[in-house]
């Protein structure tokens, strides 16, 4: 067994660890939200409520796997699969540590963006195939939101790419050995953070699945494990965005004393916690506010950022 990028062991452990972490996040989020809301959160099942995830899994697997008779069966079943696959694929290019990762790709940044675009299909198909007005509204919102925010997400990354001179995420990390890109690319970081939240439609940008308005949006009709796949997919997205932020702006595995992988995990965990804090603190904006904010503020800002970065490099 060799331990290098692309080895079988590597692939297996990345897959398992990522999925386990995503599942555990369900518990982490509920406990953290609990603390921030002066509650305890789930603490009954197992020590500290750790087995809550297991209980949830049992529940979600034993639930009736119902497909609404009025839905389009094929795309209804397909939709939750897409989001899982697409996000797991994105993880393949993440450089967790030297020698830890699935592939070392020269077009990793582009690959991640491409996969994120594909994720929009999952949400749209899920909503459309449900044949339910709330689901339809949810998928319309999701499509608009994801397509819009992909634009700034991409542009905000270009500063980093320009600084590192490569689309290869590993090379980007290596390029940060002497200084994290957060310093020269602070604006890019902020834009990427916001776009990342919107892209994974986490709170406060969970407009496509706003419970109070459109009754859980595109996954209104989903139940059982199909709903579970959407659910886990969301947490996978959360891990992915956190990992990307770590890789692109916070020097990836770089850090003193501790092994590289530990640094990576610590940094990613901080961002995951930050995303949960966002959920706890910030209320959801209106749909039109979200779009205005994106097109009228973030887009010019990200272009400006790219312009200045480019100019500085050339100078």
């Amino acid at each position: 067994m060799n331990w290098e990028v692309g080895s079988g062991l590597n692939i297996a452990s990345v897959l398992i660890v990522v999925i386990v972490i995503a599942a555990m996040l369900i518990w982490v989020e509920r406990r953290l939200l609990g603390f921030w809301q002066d509650r305890l959160g789930p603490n009954r099942v197992g020590p500290f409520g750790l087995l809550q995830v297991v209980a949830d899994m049992i529940k979600i697997f034993t639930k009736e796997d119902w497909v609404p008779p009025f839905s389009d069966r094929f795309s209804f079943v397909l939709a939750p699969g897409i989001i899982m696959i697409v996000i797991l694929m994105s993880f393949s290019v993440i450089p967790f540590a030297p020698g830890v990762g699935v592939i070392n790709s020269n077009i990793a940044v582009l690959f991640v963006l491409a996969m994120a675009s594909l994720g929009a299909y999952s949400v749209m198909l899920g909503g459309l195939s449900s044949n339910n007005k709330y689901a339809l509204l949810g998928s319309l919102r999701a499509a608009a939101q994801m397509v819009s925010y992909e634009v700034f997400m991409g542009i905000s990354l270009l500063g980093v790419v320009a600084l590192a001179g490569s689309f290869n995420l590993r090379e980007i990390v290596v390029a940060q050995e002497n200084g994290w890109f957060i310093v020269p690319q602070f604006v890019g970081f902020v834009i990427f953070l916001i776009a990342g939240v919107a892209e994974s439609h986490r709170l406060p940008f969970d407009i496509p699945e706003a419970e109070q308005e459109i009754c859980a949006g595109y996954h209104t009709e989903y139940s059982g494990m199909k709903f579970g796949m959407f659910f886990v997919g969301e947490y996978l997205g959360l891990v992915l965005i956190s990992s990307l932020i770590t890789v692109l702006f916070f020097g990836g595995w770089h850090g003193p004393l501790l092994p590289p992988i530990v640094w990576f995990v610590i940094k990613a965990a901080i961002f995951i916690a930050f995303f949960i804090l966002l959920r706890a603190a910030i209320p959801r904006p209106r749909y039109d506010q979200l779009m205005t904010y994106g097109w009228l503020f973030l887009l010019p800002l990200s272009l400006l950022n790219l312009l200045i970065t480019g100019a500085l490099i050339l100078l």
Binding site: D38, R39, A281
Partner: peptide
């Protein structure tokens, strides 16, 4: 106004909520 709002309102509320980690729970 948006920038100002983001800095003051949003960041402040993030901080305020974060501090609740150290507040005793009511449960």
């Amino acid at each position: 106004a948006l920038v100002k709002d983001t800095l003051t309102s949003q960041v402040v509320s993030l901080w305020k909520v974060f501090r609740h980690l150290w507040v005793a729970t009511d449960t």
